[in-house]
């Protein structure tokens, strides 16, 4: 019905967060004056990892919006959600948002956290294996 609104809201928040983090990272690089490529391996910036979550949330939401249109649950006229037109359906819609919608957000975020954890471990391992003259 409208479960998709929950991951979409999360996507809006993470997109704004990614923009803020990215601008802070750029500022830090400028302050440290280390923008030039030293040729050594560097850790992936967090903003880039946050973009993975954005892509999953926006992409998934986009395809699910299409599914909702396919099933006639989203319409091009106000209130846009067919379930929002009467009180009984609105109650079911809110229940679905609280269960399925929140579940969708949790599973996507959990998978992203696992991805970040695994890649961070891989980065640490790769940096350890780097020859000492390159890390300087």
């Amino acid at each position: 019905m409208a479960c998709i609104l929950v991951p979409m809201t999360e996507a809006i928040i993470t997109t704004i967060t990614a923009k803020v983090v990215e601008s802070k990272e750029e500022k830090t690089i400028q302050d440290l004056n280390c923008a030039e490529d030293t040729g050594s391996m560097e850790k992936m910036p967090f903003s880039r990892k946050l973009k993975w979550l954005n892509n999953m949330l926006w992409g998934g939401s986009g395809l699910l919006v299409f599914e909702h249109i396919w099933h006639g649950e989203i319409v091009p006229w106000f209130p846009f959600l067919t379930a929002a037109s009467n009180a009984a359906d609105t109650s079911a819609m809110l229940n679905e948002m609280a269960t399925v919608g929140v579940g969708m957000s949790i599973i996507v975020t959990a998978v992203w956290l696992a991805m970040v954890g695994i890649t961070s471990a891989m980065e640490k391992k790769a940096l350890k294996e780097q020859p000492p003259e390159e890390t300087a």
Binding site: I4, G59, L63, E67, V100, V108, V111
Partner: peptide, 21 residues
């Protein structure tokens, strides 16, 4: 292609939750 992968994986995870419910 990474973007396309993430779009499909995001949708797959969401539909998985939908399927479980």
């Amino acid at each position: 292609l990474g973007t396309l992968c993430l779009i499909y994986w995001g949708a797959s995870l969401m539909w998985l939750v939908d399927a479980v419910y």
